[in-house]
Design a protein around this nucleic acid. Structure first.
Lengths: 147, 147
DNA sequence: TTTGACCTGTGAGTTGCTCACAGGTTTTAG
DNA sequence: CTAAAACCTGTGAGCAACTCACAGGTCAAA
């Protein structure tokens, strides 16, 4: 299989295939005649796996180490499970955050709808956003520790 | 106010202040004595506004145009409302996607827990992920149109 | 045989910062 | 008063995970 073939088979951009190849997730062989990359069924499985893992929120380095461990005939599963559980917790947190955000946006829109189109106040910028109370959104990664 | 002052007042990294300044969101004046940037209360309001808008998912160019419209004494509200409504729809979609993801992850973990630690199968990589059914995750932005 | 569709590697663009660097300034401590 | 620490300046690079553009080589069909 050449680049376009495997890309099509996995439903990704050929450039992604090339990118994954130079990142070491795929190990194609070379056709010495024309210097083209040759991918096999195993590469395709790796690629599909990589895409699925990415959809689950694994980072490329994570995917690479899972794949490499599998190559060394170590089962990557305990490691995968660990990352997987970490990722699940993240997903839960993201959901909670987005739900809060949604509620706040909806109530803001509600208030908004009761106002004529271009009004709020004069020439200060929209107060709804300006007075947005963002304490609820301050999470560990946003916090900055300045004395 | 100097860079560090306004940064502290808004709870952001001084480099973010510099970045926003060169991106045209903030318009400080210059102290001709030492060439330092001087921010005033209005800059602080703009900065705070920008951060809140960013938390709501507005892009920097969006924030910039809201701010610039406000400077021209046009009320940016109709435009803001439009972007805001678009953003709310996105948030809803993100929530739905993440909730699906969570359910699938949880059920995968459930199956996983019934298996001994390093098992699935031999030396093929974890089948749970490998056989992950990703049709449910294919959304407009992921889809690739290959003939 | 020539066109068009593929292949190659490399380098840059995307977003929103963050950090590093090198040099100038101001504040503070001794 | 001076020297060190802590600030300021602009610019340029780095992050993630691709995507795209470029220049040149290769191969299939008309």
């Amino acid at each position: 299989m050449k680049v376009k073939d495997i890309a099509q088979a996995a439903g990704v951009n050929p450039d992604t295939v090339r990118f994954y190849t130079r990142e070491g997730l795929l190990n194609p062989t070379r056709n010495p005649d024309n210097n083209y990359q040759q991918y096999d069924a195993d590469d395709l499985r790796r690629l599909r796996f990589a895409r699925k893992a990415r959809q689950l929120g694994f980072s490329l380095p994570e995917v690479r180490s899972i794949l490499n461990q599998a190559d060394d005939h170590h089962s990557p599963c305990p490691m995968v499970r660990e990352v997987f559980e970490k990722r699940l917790a993240e997903v839960e947190r993201e959901i909670a955050e987005l739900q809060q955000l949604r509620e706040r946006m909806k109530s803001a829109l509600g208030i908004w709808r009761e106002m004529p189109d271009g009004t709020p106040d004069g020439h200060t910028i929209c107060r709804l956003i300006e007075h947005w109370d963002d304490t609820a959104l301050a999470t560990s990664e946003e916090e900055q520790a300045y004395d």
